[in-house]
Write a protein that binds this DNA or RNA. Sequence first.
DNA 1: CTCCTCGTCAACCTGTTGGTTGACAACGAG
DNA 2: CTCGTTGTCAACCAACAGGTTGACGAGGAG
Lengths: 121, 121
Amino acid sequence: MTDQLSRVFAALADPTRRDIVARLTVADATVGALAEPYDVSVQAVSKHLKVLEDAGLVSRSRDAQRRPVHLEAEVFDLMTKWIERYRRQAEERFSRLDAVLAEMDSDTDHRSGSTREGTAS
Amino acid sequence: MTDQLSRVFAALADPTRRDIVARLTVADATVGALAEPYDVSVQAVSKHLKVLEDAGLVSRSRDAQRRPVHLEAEVFDLMTKWIERYRRQAEERFSRLDAVLAEMDSDTDHRSGSTREGTAS
DNA sequence: CTCCTCGTCAACCTGTTGGTTGACAACGAG
DNA sequence: CTCGTTGTCAACCAACAGGTTGACGAGGAG
């Protein structure tokens, strides 16, 4: 799962991690403060933060022995762009439905094979 | 990973699955046609489709022994809503940065503890 | 009826994830 | 200097994800 888009989606696939992101939109926080509401060890939260950091969603600075966690909201744009692109494409397709049906019929043996393009990642 | 939002994010965390979604924005397709470009077995693609279906991103109908796969674009809204909500919150926060810094300073021992709300999922 | 195609199900294997506990580095406070 | 706090690292474990192969059901074509 090398590409960033995959890492971002994977990071947000976990409810705890999503909740952490949600709380970070309000204010930066230390690892301990972030861990407090959850019923897991601080180490587990530290791991979650590593996942978020590897995805580029979060950054950590240094303040004595504390490590304040900061949300990097720009990465959201990466997702939004991907989603919007294909959502728009899907809507456009919806408006030329007949063409689609025609294509499926002519698919008898030469199976298009070159509908490819865009291709995520 | 019970909630749908988690399932949707997890489904899109895989490049192959994202590519399948991308191709389905162009036209519905059969499992075989979808599998053809990838260097994996048809069974593997069948599994990917199950993941997408469980996430509500895709539906399958019946046409003789074929199972045309159809994109359900509405689910995109679920993600978009989540993302936009917290993106906006993050931007709003950015505009009152001083308040944030003040809060981090007063965090000495009573650690806010009630910043909770929204909470994903 | 028999065969071939399309797709799913089941069993299995390997790598990754999310959690645990224990040790330890960094650093301010006494 | 020593202690308590904050957080990470390492080892370990159970569960899950993504892939494989083999068998099989459903249905059109001969």
